[in-house]
Design a protein around this nucleic acid. Structure first.
Lengths: 156, 156
DNA sequence: CGTTAAACGAGAATCAGTCTCACTAGGCGG
DNA sequence: CCGCCTAGTGAGACTGATTCTCGTTTAACG
């Protein structure tokens, strides 16, 4: 998917630009987080980000990862994703508004991303009806993934 | 709403019955949790449940609250709700399948419940398309509530 | 090149949630 | 009705994710 790779690169560029605009300096740790984040197709926990950066040779402290994520989240550049396993995950918010949601398998823990046009449009219409502006929305589905459903029935 | 009060009472009765069926004894703490839970119109954290039980004179340990909630969740009687503030919340699952979702105000923290038919049907159709069974789904909306939007603009 | 403060890494602190353990009490046979 | 057995319970220790603190590093700017 070349298009999506381009989009991700654009996100990193935009994020760095926004940070600069907001008066933040170009710190190595934060840039490393932005860059790594931009390469992900799905959400990642702070710990995972920190570990991967370590593997790449960038010795980034966990605190710096959280700091960067918090800042990016505050600027509306990343979304926090909470899958209910006690770990927050983070993923870039594409400027176009296009995004996906997550299905969690309660048997094996696997996380699958999905998109659904109908869901998005239902949420958009909802915005008009609620006395509540919608900056972000998160949909999490629990159940069992194809693999687990077929092997162990409707796993509990 | 007399109908919803009845439904909640039914939920408590059904939950206690299901517990008995599953071979569990009638313990004071668990019954207190079920009863308190059945009186709530929206989700409550374990700590809140524990505090309220304490106020009512039932000295229930936090561990017992978690134990009860875990058991009820395992039996499909309560839903875990994660609003992204680091506290899990819990609410009864009505047997009819009818339920609501939550809108969180990022300015004041207020949580509003809402229902949306279109959203539910979009999720139902989604179930057929995904290779993933849907046991539960959770939709969380972030933004600013009516009160905050009108006073401080489109809150950050 | 020197100054200044933002950004950083390491580790302490915090806090929700889980686990352990000794004690209590519900259910049941005698 | 009594006593046994075990599920249920409360208190508090433990765990692990996230946040805070602090001394050091370094980007930005003159």
């Amino acid at each position: 998917m070349a298009a999506s790779a381009t989009r991700r690169r654009d996100w990193a560029k935009g994020a760095n630009h926004a940070l600069r605009e907001a008066g933040h300096r170009a710190g190595g740790a934060r840039e490393a987080v932005v860059e790594l984040l931009s390469k992900q197709s799905c959400c990642l926990s702070a710990q995972e980000l920190c570990d991967r950066l370590g593997e790449q040779g960038s010795n980034v402290g966990l605190a710096s990862v959280y700091r960067a994520l918090d800042l990016l989240h505050g600027m509306g550049l990343v979304q926090r994703v909470d899958l209910g396993d006690g770990n927050l995950r983070f993923e870039p918010i594409q400027p176009g508004g296009e995004h996906h949601h997550h299905a969690v398998c309660d048997s094996c823990g696997r996380v699958t991303a999905f998109e659904d046009e109908r869901l998005e449009s239902a949420l958009e219409r909802l915005a008009g009806r609620l006395r509540h502006s919608i900056n972000a929305h998160e949909v999490v589905i629990h159940g069992s993934c194809g693999r687990c459903s077929s092997s162990s029935g409707a796993g509990a």
